[in-house]
């Protein structure tokens, strides 16, 4: 009897039935609310029955002025997503590379700082950010894009993890030293040597940041900015059906992004074998 068989006998894994029960329970947990949302959007009204009229209205461009906040919010959220990714890439990537190459003793500190926002409730962050934003408003105006500074903080834990995983798999120290010995300066090393080798981590960090920004409500609401989530809340008071349709669309978009992360995160060998 092989060692692995003996181990299996001592610590048997879950049976097929147990596995399916677990998958079923977790799947139901996710699917029931989503199915309920879809069912809700298809209702004809108090008379009963279902149709696609509201979906047709959304995709047929028949939404009138009362739904305008959704399009404003969607536009703002897309601007914020781009600005947040830019803030994250411009600040976090060079810092992580610098710490990895030149100041490895700061690795723990950086990790602690980057993971900290996940432990602080958004409402607490907003309380701290409110006075900061009064200064930001004086310096940069009160444009919605300024929220990207706050969002840059809340996406840190997710972005850090994605980039760090990729960075740890590449010997950036030796690669950067090789590039230096060949005549490259630090900007060249960052852009032409390090970034291409952590591309997957950067894409994953960017996508997950976009997903976080599209789903963010608390900070925007409490700082009186309009984004997709706050506009959905506003519209839901007049027409809950359309707001749910947009919530579902945002969910699908985030799901597609996560699928994309899964695809780009696979190794070439996995891709070749599939």
């Amino acid at each position: 009897m092989s060692a692995s068989n003996r181990l299996h006998d001592i610590h048997p894994g879950p049976t097929r039935t147990t596995r399916w029960v677990i998958v079923g329970v977790i799947g139901a947990l996710f699917l029931i609310p989503i199915v309920a949302m879809i069912e809700f959007t298809l209702r004809k009204g108090l008379g009963g029955g279902y149709d696609f009229s509201r979906w047709a209205a959304v995709f047929g461009g028949q939404l009138t002025g009362e739904y305008k906040p959704i399009f404003t919010g969607l536009g703002n959220s897309l601007i914020l997503a781009v600005a947040t990714v830019a803030v994250m890439l411009v600040l976090l990537v060079p810092t992580m590379v610098l710490v990895r190459i030149r100041f490895p003793q700061l690795q723990r500190v950086l990790e602690f700082v980057c993971l900290l926002p996940i432990t602080i409730p958004a409402i607490v962050i907003v309380v701290g950010l409110a006075p900061v934003y009064s200064v930001i408003a004086r310096m940069f105006g009160s444009g919605v894009w300024t929220l990207a500074f706050a969002y840059g903080v809340i996406v840190l834990p997710y972005a850090y993890r994605s980039i760090q995983t990729n960075l740890a798999a590449v010997d950036v120290v030796t690669l950067s030293e090789a590039a230096r010995s060949l005549g490259a300066g630090w900007p060249t090393i960052l852009l032409r040597i390090v970034v291409p080798n952590i591309r997957r981590g950067l894409l994953a960090a960017s996508f997950i940041s976009v997903a976080v920004v599209l789903g963010e409500y608390t900070i925007a609401a409490l700082l009186n900015r309009v984004n997709l989530q706050t506009s959905l809340v506003i519209v839901s008071k007049a027409d809950p059906f359309v707001s749910i349709i947009f919530a579902l669309l945002a969910l699908v978009f985030a799901f597609v992004l996560l699928l994309a992360i899964g695809r780009i995160g696979r190794s070439p060998r996995q891709k070749a074998s599939s």
Partner: peptide, 20 residues
């Protein structure tokens, strides 16, 4: 003088080819 300006060639112990 920084490494990039010393006009040297270097081969490292670990494989240091740029993978991309």
């Amino acid at each position: 003088t920084p490494a990039r300006s010393r006009d040297i060639g270097m081969v490292f112990q670990s494989y240091s080819l740029f993978p991309h």
